[in-house]
Design a protein around this nucleic acid. Structure first.
Length: 217
DNA sequence: ACGGCGATGATCT
DNA sequence: GATCATCGCCGTT
């Protein structure tokens, strides 16, 4: 059973910790992969300089300005996809604001063979904990790309669904919080949430500006 | 464990 | 033209 849309009809900062322990499923012709979430980050809308919604609505981020409970998928660094859950906006009307939760890591609990095949590069075998450890790896393990941008994760017939999990870390006091990963602004805001002790939580890396490439004469 | 760096392209100013 | 909500590989402690 997918989660109800009301769950996402709150600000992302409230939704984010509640998503820990929930399960994202993606059904494709190749099979089903399911990931239990262990690490997420909240992004406020227009008021958050680190949010893709900060500078307003564009073609890329348009889904963020729509109704909650849909997936916002973006492409970055020329090769990676990341997925967010759209939450309630910050303005009085739909289309104002646009907060979202970035899914950063999880544990593969179904379809591990398929996830492993999608993630494999060379002959080396991956540890189970690394299959969906990191936002781009999570998308790769689940087979998520921009064709799923805007997918309704609350619909039972949707190929991409967010479901309640068997475990509820939110109720067992095992959630930790800290600064968001890789953001160049508002780095002091502790809107990253993860499950304490989970081996699938990605390693923290502060944002490092790229140095300009040295050109030899 | 940690730091540097290249890959690779859409998006925005 | 610069920036990027990243990853994997290689090097050094």
């Amino acid at each position: 059973m997918p989660i109800s849309r009301d769950f996402f009809a709150r600000h992302a900062v409230e939704v984010a910790p509640d998503l820990l322990g929930c399960v994202l499923e993606h059904q494709t012709p190749d099979g089903l992969v399911a990931v239990e979430l262990t690490e997420v980050e909240a992004y406020a809308g227009r008021s958050d300089p680190a949010s893709h919604a900060y500078r307003g609505k564009t073609r890329r981020n348009a889904v963020m300005f729509g109704p909650p409970g849909h997936a916002y998928v973006y492409f970055t660094y020329g090769m990676h996809f990341c997925v967010n859950m759209v939450c309630l906006g910050e303005g009085p009307a739909l289309g104002e604001g646009a907060s979202a939760v970035l899914l950063r890591a999880g544990a593969v609990i179904a379809g591990e063979d398929l996830a492993r095949a999608r993630r494999a590069r060379g002959p080396a075998d991956l540890a189970s904990r690394d299959l969906a450890r990191g936002p781009a790896r999570l998308c790769q393990a689940l087979g998520i790309d921009r064709s799923l941008d805007g997918a309704d994760v609350c619909a039972a017939e949707s190929p991409l669904r967010m479901c309640t999990g068997a475990r509820h870390p939110a109720r067992s006091g095992k959630i930790l919080t800290g600064p968001r990963v890789g953001v160049s602004s508002a780095a002091e805001i502790p809107w990253r949430f993860w499950v304490d002790g989970e081996p699938t939580v990605s390693v923290y890396r502060a944002h490092v500006p790229r140095r300009p490439k040295l050109v030899t004469p």
